[in-house]
Write a protein that binds this DNA or RNA. Structure first.
Length: 882
DNA sequence: CTACTCACG
DNA sequence: ACGTACGTGAGTAGA
């Protein structure tokens, strides 16, 4: 007969692990009733893997019965201070039981005991009856149960991979036997379960003591033999705690479990039950594994298929309509079109015939200033329509923008997904309908048309709902006066594009190729072998193993070879300088020279970037395909890339205007700090003024370049949410000195200190911080028990209003600038935005006007308590506009 | 697909 | 005692 194999699963622990493993995609895992399903999904994955791997003959999932157990009776504070189970997880627990029913696995709980004790008791019974046992848990403490018959499988970072603890593996990993784990806990305590152990003894010391004495009991029998020390005093003092903690850590193996091994035979899953369950949970991948398809969104939808004959009927549409233009490729400057939908939820018209858009009826509707158009991603739609020769005039609701303003995290480019995030479930996600990655394609026509039809209703319902939420949040102005008009400005900038001199790039390409080859031979000679210099792994081996250079810093996977490390090694060997050079040049060559050449449109020799307006957590824009916001400027060789960016017409120039120290000016404004404001009002060099104050200097004559550099770093540090360590690393001083700088800074600029404290306070109270234009960023981690997460949230609480308000200001300037260009009927085009800088191409005859107009529009974008300063320059290329 | 590195504000 | 600056995108290596 086949050997009996028992599988015991720690239900609560696995549910927790699954929940947090998929926490980032929490919003992606919901069913149509808005139930979160991530923990259920993760649990299911784990079950599939474990069952396939171990093929048990009996199985049970043990759950904790409640908060109070015999342990809490022993020690009030047991598991005290734990934060509450998130509601998004609690709501999944009943369904988890349902899932187990589908798998034919019993679950069990026992009042006054924890899941561990059930597992301990049953595994003992099973061992006695000759079973081999596997325990699955996320909690390493259970490894105390491992024996020659019992393996404890502890989940690794995900939940589907496990690490198997046998007694020998426990010894190898922890240096003690499974039985001694409770002794470690007795001496060291457990912070997550909140019991104490012995003062000042941590895991390391506990293991050392146990190696010598074997157990808590023997240790105390020999306590007198210990040399006189603080540790000995603590041990004697905390004797009772040690014994109690050991007892708390000990898993019961004789709990009054009322279920027997015969009751939990595993006979396989109930497929029909599971199919039904998966449909309810919207688990498409599990369904397709079972050759089943997902239940369709349940509401039928009525729509008309548009054609040449019935198109006149669109004239009957009201003055508020919805529209969606489908382009499957992310890059809408190049994507094919595959269909569109127009109408109202009551009167939907769909087609996959793009030619129809050129019909005057549609052109008039979309181009009409009196017909309001609701849509998803106005900028994308505007650019797409523009390529088809159609103007879009009057956007009303853009649900992507609305959603992003309400919560910067709800910004999916997939309409269906975004709808689900707002609990609208009568539509599938685009990813489901079209597929992702290489499998992305247009589905059969009926599916396509139906999906498009559903978009109309989703847009209308969500548009109204989200607008009401914007009103509640006092974010209406932000939507109507900033983001919505900005989306059109950005569309126009993207459409304009910027002309590129590809001959110049090609010329640079061959220069760089030659230089790289030279440096490469030098590096190989110095290393004594050929290797891939671009591989940090190979480079690390050459530098630190073969050449035996001192290791400065390590990464997770090996030696760090980042610039700051290499700079510390300069002088150790000439190879370092060559590597630094190689890195610089190869970066410029591959990312910029070759990268940019790849994205020049062949029809107009221009680059058309895409701005992401709904991505950043602060309100800044980002630029992709290509990123035109990180073209080199700091190093001369890289800066030359800018020579390839030229005006699109002869006799025009590139003009660039940038805000000077906008973030520090915003800081002066929102903190209200008198000294900081004074410095700006007097037009002082802000870094020098800071230097004078924090170093206690007489006047500017005492400010050396080095002192100014340090003060500058302090100013940056303040804006980023300073730490003494961060500052010390940045300017290479001791942590102590850095701390002193910061303290002096806060003494000299008390308004700033007050602001930092109050913004953290505010974030804690209301859950979010906001900019001067009421742009919000939620900071749930501000309450985290993890020091790291919490500190990060605290720094962003103070940085986001500053970075975000600066973003608000330049956005307003861009809208005003575009308006001026239009009303003055100028040919000048705004081409790029680089966070605090705007770049234009200007015909010579307009130069005199523009070089006054741009700075005046920019510095009057908003009225702060300190003046805004703008610096302008121009030239034949972007490089020369300096 | 993740880690590392490096370009910008 | 923790382990650190804020916000981005892209190329390459190597699983």
């Amino acid at each position: 007969m086949e050997k009996d194999k028992l599988l015991l699963i720690d239900g609560n622990s696995i549910a927790f692990r699954s929940f947090f493993a998929l926490h980032n995609s929490l919003s992606k895992f919901t069913n149509k009733d808005g139930l979160h399903t991530n923990a259920i999904y993760g649990f299911n994955k784990m079950l599939d893997n474990i069952l396939a791997q171990y093929q048990p003959t009996a199985a049970l999932v043990a759950f904790d019965a409640g908060k109070t157990t015999f342990r809490t009776k022993m020690f009030d504070n047991y598991k005290g201070g734990r934060s509450k189970t998130p509601p998004e997880l609690s709501e999944q627990m009943p369904y988890l039981r349902e899932l187990l029913t589908g798998y034919g696995i019993k679950s069990y709980e026992l009042p006054d005991y924890e899941a561990d004790d059930i597992i301990g008791t049953l595994s003992k019974e099973a061992e006695e009856q000759g079973y081999s046992v596997t325990i699955v848990t996320g909690d390493r403490d259970l490894t105390q149960l491992s024996s020659d018959k019992t393996t404890v499988a502890v989940t690794k970072k995900g939940v589907s991979e496990v690490e198997e603890y046998t007694p020998s593996y426990v010894e190898e990993k922890l240096g003690v036997t499974p039985q001694q784990i409770i002794d470690i806990k007795g001496l060291a305590g457990d912070t997550s379960d909140n019991y104490p152990g012995v003062t000042k003894i941590g895991e390391k010391t506990a293991i050392k003591l146990l190696k010598e004495y074997g157990s808590v009991e023997t240790l105390y029998e020999h306590i007198d033999e210990l040399k006189k020390s603080k540790m000995k005093e603590h041990l004697i003092e905390d004797r009772e705690q040690a014994f109690m903690s050991k007892k708390l850590a000990t898993i019961k193996r004789d709990a009054p479990v009322k279920i027997s091994l015969q009751d939990i035979n595993y006979e396989g899953k109930n497929e029909d039950f599971l199919i039904n369950f998966y449909q309810k949970m919207n688990f498409k991948s599990f369904l397709s594994q079972m050759n089943q398809t997902a239940a369709d969104v349940d509401e039928e939808i009525k729509f008309n298929i548009l054609d040449e004959q019935n198109i006149e009927q669109l004239k009957n549409l009201p003055d508020e309509i919805c529209f969606y233009l489908e382009m499957l490729d992310k890059n809408y400057h190049l994507s094919d079109f595959c269909g569109f939908v127009i109408g109202t939820p009551e009167n939907i018209w769909v087609s996959d015939d793009i030619e129809l858009l050129n019909n005057a009826v549609i052109k008039n509707l979309l181009g009409s200033s009196t017909t309001k158009v609701n849509l998803f991603d106005g900028k994308r739609t505007y650019v797409g329509l523009h390529r088809l020769g159609i103007e879009l005039d009057n956007i009303n609701f853009d649900i992507l923008l609305q959603s992003y303003l309400l919560d910067t995290n709800d910004n999916s480019n997939d309409l269906g997904q975004l709808a689900h995030e707002h609990n609208y479930n009568q539509i599938d996600t685009d990813a489901e309908v079209y597929g992702t990655g290489a499998k992305r394609a247009v589905p059969e026509t009926t599916i396509l048309l139906k999906h498009l039809a559903r978009k109309v209703k989703a847009i209308q319902v969500l548009g109204e709902q989200l607008q009401a939420e914007l009103v509640d949040n006092k974010q209406e102005k932000l939507y109507w006066e900033i983001e919505l008009p900005l989306s059109i400005v950005l569309a126009k900038m993207e459409i304009s594009g910027i002309k590129v001199n590809s001959d110049r790039l090609h010329q640079m390409q061959s220069e760089f190729t030659e230089r790289l080859a030279e440096i490469e031979t030098d590096i190989y000679r110095e290393a004594g072998e050929e290797f891939n210099i671009n591989s940090p792994k190979q480079l690390g081996e050459v530098l630190f193993e073969k050449m035996k250079l001192p290791v400065i810093k390590k990464t997770k996977t090996g030696y760090s070879t980042a610039v700051d490390v290499l700079e510390k090694l300069q002088g150790e060997s000439p190879i370092i300088d060559n590597i630094l050079n190689y890195r610089t040049i190869s970066k410029i060559k591959s990312t910029y020279v070759e990268g940019l050449l790849k994205v020049i449109h062949s029809n107009d020799q221009k680059i058309h970037t895409t701005y992401l307006q709904t991505l950043t957590q602060t309100g800044r824009l980002s630029s992709i395909e290509p990123n035109l916001q990180n073209i080199p400027i700091r190093i001369e060789e890289g800066k030359k890339i800018r020579q390839a960016f030229i005006p699109s017409h002869k006799g025009w120039h590139i003009l660039s205007s940038d805000y000077s120290q906008i973030e520090l000016r915003v800081l002066a404004h929102i903190t209200g700090d008198k000294h900081l404001q004074e410095a700006f009002k007097n037009g002082e060099d802000i870094h020098s003024s800071t230097a004078i104050r924090i170093f206690g200097l007489k006047d500017a004559s005492e400010v050396t370049p080095n002192i100014r550099r340090q003060a500058k770093a302090v100013n940056f540090g303040i804006v980023y949410g300073i730490s003494d360590y961060g500052l010390s690393q940045n300017i290479g001083i001791s942590r102590k000195d850095a701390k002193k700088f910061i303290e002096t800074y806060f003494k000299e600029f008390p308004g700033v200190k007050k602001y930092i404290d109050s913004s953290v306070e505010l974030a804690k109270e209301q859950g979010y911080v906001e900019t001067i234009s009421h742009r919000r960023r939620y900071l749930p981690d501000i309450h985290s028990s993890s020091f790291n997460l919490r500190s990060f949230a605290e720094r962003t609480a103070m940085n986001t209003p500053i970075q975000g308000s600066a973003a608000d200001i330049i956005k307003i300037a861009m809208i005003n600038m575009e308006k001026e260009l239009e009303t003055r009927n100028l040919k000048t085009r705004m081409l790029l935005q680089v966070h605090d800088e705007l770049i234009f191409e200007v015909p010579d005859e307009e130069m005199a006007e523009i070089k006054k107009l741009v700075p005046s529009v920019m510095d009057s974008a908003i009225k702060l308590d300190v003046p805004l300063k703008v610096e302008t320059s121009w030239g034949n290329t972007w490089y020369d506009a300096k």
